[in-house]
Each structure stands twice: as structure tokens, then as C-alpha cells.
Design a protein around this nucleic acid. Structure first.
Length: 194
DNA sequence: CACCCGATTATCT
DNA sequence: GATAATCGGGTGT
């Protein structure tokens, strides 16, 4: 098995970690099944320098993991319907930070993902932040789990990413900080959102 | 307790 | 492309 990403990996600048998570493998154990996918799209969210971040105005009950728990999951509920899965990552000089996982290329347990999503079409299975959490069965129960341990949810090394395959753009679905180029995706991959 | 709104998605036209 | 769905968090009264 590929080596699991350790605490050090996540203890770096949020935007750098967002870039480096491309090509890694997200694994989720679901009803004794193993569901996984290759991370093909991410976005970085920081703290007081980032008006688009949950952590912008300081620590609250919801966003507390972003401040304290490097290498842990941060899952939140949005628009009354969807869960978004984030990885807490930041350097010591940042107060908070997390990487939103926006899309996966489905790998293991595809038939269970199709069942979870009520969606047969592979193309539409995990090509968005709310879609991939539904496919993997990620909900509020998966908030604040240590991703550096081989338990319910973790991330391991995956495929080699060529630097000229990485596209950098502004983030999606936010009304502020459009100038920040903190979204990354693999140009050659079909599962990128939108 | 009332109000506003969001790191989205599916389903229209 | 436009919009309804849907509900918990955050804020202020």
C-alpha cells in the first residue's frame, strides 16, 4: 500500500498543501467496504487574509477544527443538502487553514458509490464537493477524524502528477476574494467539476 | 428567537 | 442560464 500522508505533509502552507493533494488517494471505509478516489481538484482556504474562508472572522464552534487540528478532517453542512469535506492544513504562522476536496476520480467501490448517489453515470459520480461526500458516505459523523491514521478516513500517496498538468485558477462558488488563485485541478482529468 | 445566507446540486427553460 | 430546494450556523435583538 502506498504510504499514508503524515502530520508533516499537512503542516505547511494551506495553498501549497492544496496543490500537493492533487493525485493523492482518499480512502473511506463504508459499511466494511473500501471506497476510494484520486483527488483531482482542490481549493485552499486560509484565515484572516482570506475573506472567503470560514475562518476569516475568527474561531467559532463550527470552524474550530481549522484552527487547531492539522491533518484532521473538517466536514460541514451546506445549502441544507450537502456535506463538504476538507483537510485541515496550515503552517505554524497561519492561524487557520483547510483544503476543500472538490472532485475525485472514482477508484475502489464504484458500485457502492453509484448506489449512494443513485447515479449510474461515472462522469457524474464524484465531480463536485457535495457529490463526492455523498458517493463516499461522508457526513457530519466524519468531522474531526485523524487522516494520518489507517482508520475510517485517510489519505495515501497516489499517482505521479506532472507539474504541467496542474491548472491554477480562482475559486468557485464564492462572492469575494476572486483574485486569489487558490483552486487547483488536473487538466487531463475528466472528473474535475463544472 | 428572528433573520440572513451559504466553499452546491438537480432540474427546469 | 436560471432557480428552487433545504437547514444549520452566526449574528443581533
Amino acid at each position: 500500500m502506498d504510504p499514508i500522508l503524515d502530520r508533516w505533509f499537512y503542516s505547511r502552507d494551506t495553498v501549497l498543501v492544496a496543490r500537493d493533494l492533487l493525485g493523492k488517494l482518499l480512502v473511506c471505509k463504508y459499511n466494511r467496504k473500501l471506497l476510494s478516489g484520486i483527488i483531482v481538484e482542490t481549493e485552499g482556504y486560509r484565515a484572516s487574509d482570506d475573506p472567503a474562508s470560514h475562518a476569516y472572522k475568527g474561531k467559532t464552534r463550527r470552524n474550530a477544527p481549522m484552527f487547531d487540528l492539522v491533518g484532521y478532517s473538517y466536514v460541514y453542512f451546506i445549502y441544507g443538502n450537502h456535506f463538504c469535506f476538507n483537510v485541515v492544513a496550515k503552517s505554524n504562522d497561519q492561524k487557520a487553514g483547510a483544503v476543500l476536496i472538490r472532485a475525485l476520480e472514482p477508484l475502489d467501490g464504484i458500485e457502492f458509490m453509484q448506489k449512494n448517489r443513485k447515479q449510474e453515470d461515472l462522469q457524474l459520480l464524484t465531480n463536485g464537493p457535495g457529490k463526492l461526500t455523498q458517493a463516499l458516505g461522508i457526513s457530519q459523523d466524519h468531522n474531526v477524524l485523524d487522516l494520518t491514521k489507517l482508520k475510517k478516513l485517510y489519505i495515501v500517496d497516489g499517482i505521479l502528477v506532472k507539474s504541467d498538468d496542474v491548472v491554477t485558477t480562482n475559486r468557485i462558488g464564492i462572492g469575494v476574494a476572486h483574485e486569489k488563485q487558490w483552486r487547483f485541478y488536473l487538466a487531463s482529468n475528466r472528473w474535475v467539476s463544472k
